Amino acid sequence: MGEKGIRIAVNFIVRMVIGTAMIFFVNEFLSIQEIAVCVGISPVTVLTSGTLGIPGVILLYGIKFYSLL
């Protein structure tokens, strides 16, 4: 694995950690506001946030809001 591969792997892991933390904190914020929308932290959501980054987290919440309509 070359330097480029290591850079891609580290970037993916950092986005996974940041995305998972964002999901956690947004869930906490929404529960404090008494809004009944919660995106669970599962392998699928972690991989989505790792692959797509912040837009992936926004996409997950958009899907959740849409499913409530």
Rank of each mutant, 00 (worst) to 15 (best):
M1I: 15
M1F: 13
M1E: 11
M1T: 09
G2Q: 10
E3T: 04
E3R: 07
E3N: 12
K4M: 13
K4E: 14
G5A: 15
I6A: 03
I6M: 09
R7G: 05
R7C: 10
R7V: 08
I8Y: 03
I8K: 10
I8M: 15
A9Y: 05
A9C: 07
V10P: 12
V10N: 07
V10R: 14
V10A: 15
N11P: 14
F12H: 01
V14L: 12
V14G: 13
V14Y: 15
M16P: 11
V17M: 05
V17C: 02
V17Q: 01
I18K: 10
I18V: 06
I18L: 12
I18C: 08
G19Y: 13
T20Y: 14
T20I: 05
T20F: 12
M22R: 00
I23Q: 01
I23D: 01
I23W: 01
I23V: 03
F24C: 00
F24T: 03
F25C: 06
F25E: 12
F25N: 13
V26I: 08
V26N: 01
N27W: 06
N27D: 04
N27H: 13
N27Y: 09
N27S: 08
E28K: 02
E28N: 10
L30D: 01
L30C: 08
L30K: 10
L30Q: 06
S31V: 11
S31M: 07
I32N: 05
I32A: 11
Q33W: 09
Q33R: 11
E34H: 14
I35C: 04
I35M: 11
I35T: 13
A36P: 07
V37T: 15
V37S: 00
C38M: 00
C38G: 02
V39L: 06
V39P: 12
G40K: 05
G40Y: 08
I41W: 05
S42W: 07
S42N: 15
P43F: 13
P43M: 02
P43Q: 15
P43K: 08
V44K: 02
V44L: 05
V44H: 00
V46T: 12
V46N: 01
V46P: 05
V46H: 06
L47G: 12
T48V: 12
T48C: 08
G50Y: 02
G50S: 14
G50P: 11
G50V: 10
T51S: 09
T51R: 06
T51Q: 09
T51L: 14
T51E: 01
L52T: 07
L52D: 15
L52A: 09
G53E: 03
I54S: 09
I54G: 07
I54T: 07
I54D: 02
I54R: 11
I54C: 02
P55L: 13
P55R: 04
V57D: 00
I58P: 04
I58A: 15
I58F: 00
L59T: 03
L59N: 04
L60N: 04
Y61Q: 07
Y61T: 10
G62L: 14
G62T: 02
G62Q: 13
I63M: 09
I63N: 02
I63E: 00
K64H: 02
F65I: 01
F65N: 00
F65A: 12
Y66S: 06
Y66F: 00
Y66I: 15
L68R: 01
L68M: 13
L68P: 11
L68Q: 06
